[in-house]
């Protein structure tokens, strides 16, 4: 089947099977390998992308379901070489170590700001329950998202 998507601002059409997951369409067909497959049960969040502005675990969505949708991946955040505030916050606050969960964490952080505004650290911790990181112990991810949220509010 053919699926039409707008991905990171570009219109694309891809041929997939009816069982192709969105994560595989992005990674294998469009070679956008920033979103990662960390589990198969939508528990880890490494595959998180924005679909029509909402954070979605792309391992739990068929490519066909995303037909006609606007998808933003980690590769689509930086504009003209300038990092998105949430990206910058992760580097500034050492919110990553191996970097595998990081794209999902950043996308979730952006969605969190959309839903909760400049949330405090306790809110960030509870909102992060669906994204796993094995390296950082979350402390600096929480700080990064809280700081990124403040910066996004400042930029808006």
């Amino acid at each position: 089947m053919t699926v039409a998507l707008r991905v990171n601002g570009e219109d694309v059409r891809i041929d997939v099977t009816d069982r192709t997951l969105l994560i595989h369409a992005l990674r294998d067909h469009l070679r956008l390998t920033g979103a990662h497959m960390g589990c198969d049960t939508s528990q880890c969040g490494a595959c998180t992308v924005l679909v029509d502005g909402v954070a979605v675990k792309s391992c739990a969505m068929l490519a066909g379901q995303a037909d006609g949708c606007e998808v933003v991946t980690i590769e689509g955040l930086a504009r003209d070489g300038a990092l998105h505030p949430m990206q910058a916050a992760f580097a500034e606050h050492h919110g990553l170590q191996c970097g595998f969960c990081t794209p999902g964490m950043i996308m979730l952080g952006i969605d969190l700001v959309r839903r909760r505004g400049a949330a405090d650290e306790a809110t960030v911790r509870s909102e992060l329950a669906g994204n796993l990181c094995r390296c950082t112990g979350y402390q600096n991810i929480v700080k990064a998202i809280a700081a990124g949220a403040r910066d996004m509010a400042g930029a808006a």
């Binding site: 956008l32 390998t33 979103a35 980690i74 990206q87 580097a91 990553l96 970097g99 794209p103």
Partner: peptide, 21 residues
């Protein structure tokens, strides 16, 4: 010192084995 390797990870440009086709 802030990490020199972070730029690629926060922009989705890390290269992990499964990224290689």
């Amino acid at each position: 010192v802030r990490r020199l390797e972070d730029g690629r990870f926060i922009q989705g440009n890390g290269r992990f084995v499964d990224d290689v086709i």
